[in-house]
């Protein structure tokens, strides 16, 4: 069984304007030592999916009864959504599951040193003494490539550069030796040269620590560089998923194809950019049937608007949810 199994995750938010669907029927698995890339535009539900794994969504979040998130540890299997009290939740909030956020400046408290952050969480999640925790923290800071780790340990987040803050964030997330690491747009706020350094570091760390990673990003280039498998999300649904080579080289869902065509490519400078027509619908006006039908170039008349396509197997491990593929298959 996989390290993490998410099955039929349905998540809605109660708001003043009514109940908004954020995630609909999302299922995926992550194995130990594997990087799953979750890609999608803003509003696609990738961050709330990740936060569900730690139950970090706000209190107006409503999970449907059939949703299940199972985490397999050495001794036990944890049903994440059934955890209630904060003492039970410790296991997925920093214990077996850690998270790296997009904006490291916003994730460190400004009036607490980097070192205190790191020691505090080690004291919560491990049985280390304060002294041992401090030593381990400094060791981790060195491991992620921070110079003068002993000095940085006593500094505040504002004294570090953006790249260094993100390294410190990674060091902190990994010091508890999590089984699963959630990285939510970890390089989006960084410059390309620093991004390349951080991605390299993360690849090294997977090899060394052997954990599973859920890597969330909107950047398909980053996905190509780090992920083993990829799931493409649009408006709360996974529209296509499979091994990274298959999905990026021969995408079958019109949305994935559209995303790749809209991307400026360095080896094809003369090609015009083709935007995906239309705008992302507001969550309050969620399209019926296939959520992508309002922007889809391959829309099938009176089919796509009415019913929801299920995941069709394109090839081994490569699936996509689209009626156009189903009919192609039948014709073939």
């Amino acid at each position: 069984m996989s390290l993490l199994t998410v099955n039929n995750l349905n998540l809605q938010f109660d708001t003043d304007e009514g109940r908004i669907t954020a995630v609909e029927n999302v299922s995926f698995e992550i194995n130990t030592g594997e990087v799953l890339g979750l890609v999608g535009e803003s509003g696609s539900g990738k961050s709330v999916t990740a936060k569900s794994l730690m139950q970090l969504n706000p209190s107006n979040a409503v999970y449907s009864p059939e949703s299940s998130i199972k985490l397999k540890l050495e001794t036990e299997e944890v049903d994440v959504l059934s955890l209630k009290s904060s003492s039970e939740l410790v296991i997925v909030r920093g214990g077996a599951v850690s998270m790296i956020f997009q904006e490291p400046m916003a994730s460190f408290a400004p009036a607490i040193t980097i070192g205190s952050h790191m020691v505090e969480q080690l004291l919560i999640h491990t049985s280390l003494t304060k002294k041992a925790a401090a030593e381990l923290s400094i060791e981790m800071l060195e491991r992620v490539g921070i110079n003068e780790a002993g000095k940085r340990f006593h500094q505040y987040a504002f004294e570090l550069s953006g790249g260094m803050r993100q390294r410190a964030m990674i060091a902190m997330a990994l010091s508890t030796k999590p089984k699963l690491l959630i990285a939510d747009e970890p390089t989006t706020a960084l410059d390309v040269t620093i991004q390349a350094q951080v991605l390299d570091l993360m690849k090294d760390l997977v090899a060394e620590f052997g954990m599973g990673i859920l890597f969330i990003t909107h950047d398909l280039g980053v996905i190509a560089q780090v992920a083993d498998r990829v799931a493409v999300m649009y408006l709360g649904r996974v529209v296509e998923s499979g091994p990274v080579r298959d999905v990026l080289r021969s995408p079958v869902h019109p949305y994935t194809q559209g995303l790749l065509n809209a991307l400026p490519k360095l080896d094809a400078l003369d090609q015009p950019l083709t935007p995906v027509e239309g705008d992302i619908p507001s969550p309050l006006e969620r399209p019926s049937g296939c959520v992508f039908h309002t922007r889809c170039p391959q829309i099938l008349a009176d089919h796509c608007q009415n019913s929801v396509p299920s995941a069709t197997i394109v090839s081994k491990k490569h699936t996509a949810a689209c009626f156009a593929i189903e009919t192609d298959k039948e014709a073939a």
């Binding site: 991004q195 350094q197 390299d200 280039g221 190509a224």
Partner: peptide, 17 residues
């Protein structure tokens, strides 16, 4: 060379700064 390539087989060839 730091721009992430869309080709999954083209990993780690970047000239790193």
């Amino acid at each position: 060379s730091a721009i992430p390539s869309l080709n999954p087989d083209d990993r780690g060839h970047a000239q790193k700064l």
